[in-house]
Nucleic acid binder design. Sequence first.
DNA 1: CTTAATTACTTTATACTATAAAGTTAAAAA
DNA 2: TTTTTAACTTTATAGTATAAAGTAATTAAG
Lengths: 127, 127
Amino acid sequence: MNPSDLEKTAGRYAYDGLDRIIHEKARLSIIASLAGYSEGLLFNELKELCSLTDGNLSRHLAILQEADLVQMWKGTRNKRPQTLARLTEHGRRRFLEYVTRLERVVADASQLTRQPESGATLRPRTA
Amino acid sequence: MNPSDLEKTAGRYAYDGLDRIIHEKARLSIIASLAGYSEGLLFNELKELCSLTDGNLSRHLAILQEADLVQMWKGTRNKRPQTLARLTEHGRRRFLEYVTRLERVVADASQLTRQPESGATLRPRTA
DNA sequence: CTTAATTACTTTATACTATAAAGTTAAAAA
DNA sequence: TTTTTAACTTTATAGTATAAAGTAATTAAG
């Protein structure tokens, strides 16, 4: 890479749009689950789908709720408390944005499957 | 979601393959950069491309090196120490695996862009 | 020629945060 | 009426990302 290339591409791989709150594996898991079920999912369903412990899921849901990505409905079912979680409209948009950024990561990676050296300039080496 | 669905899909969204070491944003940034430059990148080039501070980059490179995802070459250039980082073959394979998992996340998310309720069963509600 | 500044990093102290263990509340079973 | 189960929540801890401070070597300044 020569110096002028750098200027054109500073921050090129910084992936600014990869929002920390969504990027965290457990929460990505939760959000992706909810994305597939627009009417929402119960606490225990999420627990299974995401393979999370009770305490862990509870904390991540609280974080997602504070960020207004997920809304929670508390009710009862067969005299047992039940919590239903679903994506907010804001959460839906933010997730779609996040996925758009992910697609760039995937696109960047496609260079790896091409021939080595493709697109990369040779480095002048002075030992 | 009815109970039998759950059994079929327990852990469906756990995203086990999203290796912690690669998934971390700063390191994903570093690895994706290196993926584009098979001959490697200098410390300062990475710093710019990934918008990282010196200390931060140094630590993440050390972690990637310990995991045998990246190898480092220390030499001098114009009487200055220079560190060149490049993906190991192992790192290349692991990154490709990681990206395969990412593609699943992206595919899961495509449900969001379809009509609401698509593919999801209505939940019987007992308030 | 001695001191200050720059370069290229590395080490460490701190602040953050993911996680599970322990705690809470209420219903059902024993 | 005591114990167990269910559905969570709270908190203590362990892990870790980050930047501030430190190191070593070169070059510039006075």
